[in-house]
Design a binder for these strands. Structure first.
Length: 575
DNA sequence: GTAGGGTTAG
């Protein structure tokens, strides 16, 4: 075998930088390093081994310029994928080392880097280059461009490209735009596009995974069921895990468990989503039991699994179990606790009223406490409003670090309201006004006959707005008939003076409830999903409405479910 | 001829 063929084979199978150096020495000895095609392969091999800077140094030492873009493309890719590198470096390399003749392989990774660094400027410049080179319609460049605009939130440009796309029979183009919608909280649009996709082409596994994420945000249980049916018999670990997760997040832990039990193969993610699903619904003991089963069958839990485990403990008030699990995570599984784990533990202790222990934990953490840690203590404090001194201390710390974060103000205001301290509420609201803080509007969704209806606070844009308002009044009357006085004060505080009457129960989840009551007949249960950061105070209304209308009402507030039946709530949280 | 697009839990 000639030396050059041997070196080609060696480069192909090279798996360490040490052997790369040896091959390089051999190339110099046989003077092959002067050949542009060999130099190019050497550079590409260094890039493949996640050594982009070594690749650049070989590139610079190569005697002749390399006309083939292969070596440059490999370095761009290497900067994008090397664990210790930043995507911006691939863009920097591209601008500092111009490629003599860039091709269709050059741009997709650069566009991905621009998307990852949220740089609309750099991406638009790449778009211009693509147009200049007439590469803009090339399938992979076109998809990458579309994905770039969609994931940067420039949906107008994304839509423009998509509407004129010559590749609308290609599923990747659809996946790019649908995933862009999901990333920007427009899951409703994502589902609309999914329906449209079915008219043009066949969805693939990636489509289903993206769409299942959209369903999870919206609580589109029937769409998840439809997908499960469409996939009959073709459920692998990935799609099965996504299904289990989507079913749990849509409020059907039973369906999640059914899919989980039927899976022939499960990995750490599958177990983790099932544990989380049980935890979300308040089945803390079951979640812990499943964790033990997981360990017993030999699946090693990771750091995310423990988030689910702590979540289960805090949701079900299992304080000792939580403390034990924290020790076990460190000692038995050698997992170093991250900030998120401390956050969970702080939440658990805070909810149990052990504020001093929670504060001690924060002080003894090996990291500087983040706003998220203080925030998790503050929201946990809501369970024990009698500790107002600690609450005010924590809230003040938070307002110092993050004066622009609306969640802190709203939380503190709600805690004062829980304690009937209306002067406190007024103080916080005045502070918000003074500092120009805007509350992020909450958004709730409800599925009726497979269609998702979305509502924001005070939303009057629904076609049935008139009926919804009448229904809200009716709910109010029925609830009063039950002999309970609805405390609407907290709701009214959000609204300016003079609008009190109309403002009654205009929180987004109440609008969703009123619509669902009009649109569905008893005894069907009502599932309302709320994707926001802050809890609002609709709990008592939901409780009473479940009794007045004989309905089961399930409300998801972020990742916690509250189940209301016949005037009772099955969750331990907060209330 | 090598490589390139859409993707998985808190």
């Amino acid at each position: 075998m000639s030396e050059s063929i041997t070196i080609l084979h060696l480069l192909q199978s090279c798996s360490s930088l040490q052997s790369l150096h040896q091959i390089h020495a051999r190339m110099i000895k046989s003077q092959l390093d002067h050949s542009p095609s060999f130099a190019s392969k050497l550079v590409a091999t260094a890039a493949r081994l996640h050594a982009p800077t070594l690749a650049i140094s070989i590139l610079l030492r190569s005697p002749d310029p390399l006309p083939d873009p292969f070596a440059h493309n490999s370095i761009i890719n290497s900067f994008l994928h090397s664990p210790s590198s930043s995507p911006l470096l691939s863009l920097l390399f591209f601008s500092l080392f111009p490629i003599p003749s860039p091709n269709s392989h050059t741009f997709p990774p650069l566009l991905k880097a621009a998307a990852l660094s949220h740089s609309l400027h750099l991406g638009s410049a790449l778009h211009a280059s693509l147009l200049k080179l007439s590469l803009h319609s090339h399938l992979h460049c076109h998809t990458a461009l579309l994905s770039f605009y969609a994931s940067c939130g420039d949906s107008l440009s994304a839509r423009k490209l998509f509407d004129r796309s010559p590749h609308r029979n290609n599923v990747a183009v659809w996946n790019a735009i649908i995933s862009g919608f999901v990333k920007h909280g427009r899951s409703h649009d994502a589902l609309e596009f999914f329906r449209l996709l079915l008219l043009y082409t066949e969805p693939d596994e990636i489509t289903f995974i993206i769409v299942l994420a959209a369903c999870s945000h919206l609580g589109a249980l029937n769409v998840v069921r439809w997908i499960e049916n469409a996939l009959k018999g073709m459920i692998n670990v990935k799609i099965g895990t996504a299904l289990v997760d989507a079913f749990s997040k849509c409020g059907s832990v039973e369906d999640a468990r059914r899919v989980f039990d039927g899976m022939p193969e499960r990995n750490v993610m599958t177990w983790t989503v099932m544990i989380q699903g049980l935890a979300m619904f308040g089945y803390g003991e079951e979640a812990i039991a499943l964790f033990e089963e997981m360990v017993e069958v030999g699946v090693r839990p990771d750091d995310v699994t423990f988030i689910g485990v702590f979540y289960a403990c805090s949701h079900s008030g299992l304080v000792d179990e939580g403390r034990r699990m924290f020790d076990r995570m460190i000692k038995c599984f050698r997992i170093a606790p991250k900030m998120e784990h401390y956050g969970c533990l702080v939440d658990l202790l805070g909810r149990a009223g052990l504020l001093e222990e929670a504060l001690r934990l924060i002080e003894n953490m090996p990291f500087e406490p983040t706003p998220a840690i203080w925030g998790s203590l503050l929201s946990a404090c809501r369970k024990t409003p009698e500790n107002l001194q600690v609450i005010e201390y924590v809230a003040n710390r938070l307002m110092e670090i993050e004066p622009e974060n609306d969640a802190t103000y709203v939380l503190l205001s709600n805690i004062y309201a829980d304690n009937d301290q209306w002067d406190g509420v007024a103080r916080v609201r005045a502070l918000m006004k003074e500092r120009g803080i805007w509350k992020t509007p909450g958004c709730s969704s409800v599925e009726v006959d497979g269609t998702i209806h979305e509502f924001t606070v005070g939303d009057q844009s629904h076609p049935c707005a008139v009926e919804i308002n009448e229904m809200l009044e009716e709910i109010d009357c029925k609830v009063r008939d039950l002999g309970h006085v609805v405390d609407t004060t907290k709701v009214l505080l959000d609204i300016e003076e003079g609008e009190k009457k109309n403002a009654l129960m205009l929180h987004s989840e109440k609008l969703a409830l009123a619509f669902a009551l009009i649109a569905t007949a008893a005894p069907s249960s009502i599932r309302i999903m709320k994707n926001i950061r802050i809890c609002s105070d609709c709990h008592s209304v939901m409780k009473l409405a479940s009794k007045a209308y004989g309905r089961e009402i399930i409300v998801r507030d972020r990742n916690r479910f509250h189940k209301f039946t016949n005037g009772n709530c099955s969750c331990l949280d907060f209330w």
